[in-house]
Each structure stands twice: as C-alpha cells, then as structure tokens.
Amino acid sequence: MLRIAVPNKGSLADTASEMLHEAGYTGRRDPKDLHVIDPQNEVEFFYLRPKDIATYVGSGALDVGITGRDLLFDARMPGAREIEALGFATSTFRFAAPRGKFQDLADLQGTRIATSYPGLVDAFLDERGIAVDLVPLDGAVESAVRLGVADAIADVVETGTTLRQAGLEIFGPPILESEAVLITGPDDIDGTETLLRRLRGVLVARRYVLIDYDLPAELVDEAVKLAPGIESPTISPLRDPAWVAVRVMSPSKGVNQVMDALYAIGARAILVTPIHNARL
C-alpha cells in the first residue's frame, strides 16, 4: 500500500483532505483518527503535524506527503523532494526590521534574526554567505525586536499590516514563495504516479469549467477564437442545420467575460458547468 502523510491540523489540513476526497480517496471521518486505511485504492493515510511530514517522508518511513514548501525547506531533509505544487496555502517569506535600519541583505551580517523557520532562513542566508545568529521562536515573531531579543525577523508576510503595527518594514528580496506541495521520498514507490495523476485532475477541475452554447454555424471560427479549449471544441449538429451546439473546456477565471463575448457574436443558450475531476 502507498503510505501517504496528511496534515492533521492547521491551514493545510482541510484543503488537503478535501483534495484527496475529490481525487477519489476515502480519508478519516473522525478528526481524532491518526491512521486510516483505504483498501479500495490501496493507500494508507497517516495524519501528522505538518512540520513533521517532510521528516517522515524524507527518511523513507512514509512514501509521499502533503505539506508546505516552507516546511519542506525548513526540515532540510535530503531525501524529501517536491514533485507537484498544489495551488493552495500560498504565502511569502520576507525579512523585516525597524524602519530605516537595514537596506539590503548584506546589512544582516552578524545580527540576530528571530524566526519560526530557522532551517529555511539559515539555508537562504548561507547560500549568500551571510552569517547571523538565529533566534528560533514558536509562533508570532513580530514582538522579538521590540522586546530586544532580535535585530530583525524573518516571517510570513501577507498584507504587511501586522508588521507596520509593530513598527517594522520589509526589506531585501523574498526568502521563499510557498504553497502546499506534494512531496516524495528517496525511492520511487508504486502508486505515486496514480496519486499524482489524480491530484492533477483535481487541480485541472478547479481551474476549468465546461461552456455549452448554441451558435449559427457560420460563426464557429469566430467563436473558437474566443474560447479555443484545451485542444479544440466539440461541435455537434442541431435539428436546424443553420445552427450547431458547441462544448468547450475553458479557464474558470474570466469565464463571464468569455460568455459576454460569445453572446455578443450571436451565441445563445450559454451554460457553464463546473468540472468535478479531469484527466488531460
């Protein structure tokens, strides 16, 4: 059986479990369950702390797992590697310090940096030859400078509001653009490709919709320019030989603008349908 590590709580947990469910797997029903077997799909799920997943997968104790790219980098496990970005739980890691104190990364040489991701920050700075004293903290680090335990911080930045409230400003390049990722261990395990293909199907389904519409046959070429589809639209004859029915797979983003454009050239009965899963 393929052994899959899944986040048991936190921002990754619900969406990861939802993706696996949409991919056809049977996960836990009780949030207290830490181990679930899905015999029909020949997989075992192990529900673990997100920070620990890269360690289990990288050591070979488990085969694959879903975690954050930030947690993967922070673990610094040589055997663990990313094989697919999953498109949720996005975040950006940046340096921040009191306004005007630092201008670029070189200014950090010999300073104290507070962070909840010491492995990630240490690797980033080590690659650039910058030596610092890391102050590992568990949780919010914005107060570390004010309380005198650090000169700067390295943390997740969303809007920057919390940093500004703490009297801090962002400087230097981003440390990492993170999101949820599927990771695998040092060995190629049977079943991994099936899992990957299913998750990719879920990602496609979330990014695309089906558009169905009726159209005068003479306008097909013009309509295809507006919604070309993955390969090409399906064109079916209607009882009225002057009209055809068109079905096309189109990105969900901007679909209303596509519908407006199709209507403007003469398409009618335009319907949009969500896709639950797909294989391309």
Rank of each mutant, 00 (worst) to 15 (best):
P216E: 15
V248S: 01
R268A: 09
T194A: 13
D221M: 13
L196P: 01
A166E: 06
T161H: 07
T234V: 12
E193N: 10
I211V: 15
V202T: 13
L262K: 02
G266S: 03
S232F: 08
A166K: 00
I175V: 05
D214K: 12
V156E: 05
P228N: 12
V149H: 10
G254Q: 08
T184A: 04
Y213S: 08
L271V: 08
N256Y: 00
P241W: 04
V181T: 04
A152R: 02
D155G: 12
L199G: 03
T161D: 14
G254T: 00
A205Y: 08
N277P: 02
R198M: 07
N256M: 09
G266T: 03
V224F: 04
G167K: 01
Y263C: 06
V220Q: 07
V258A: 06
M249K: 11
V149Y: 12
G201L: 13
V181G: 06
V145I: 11
S252N: 09
E218C: 03
A205S: 13
G254S: 09
Q165H: 05
I275S: 06
R206T: 06
V149S: 15
R247C: 01
L195V: 09
R164A: 13
D221I: 15
D240N: 14
W243P: 00
P241N: 13
V149I: 15
I235A: 10
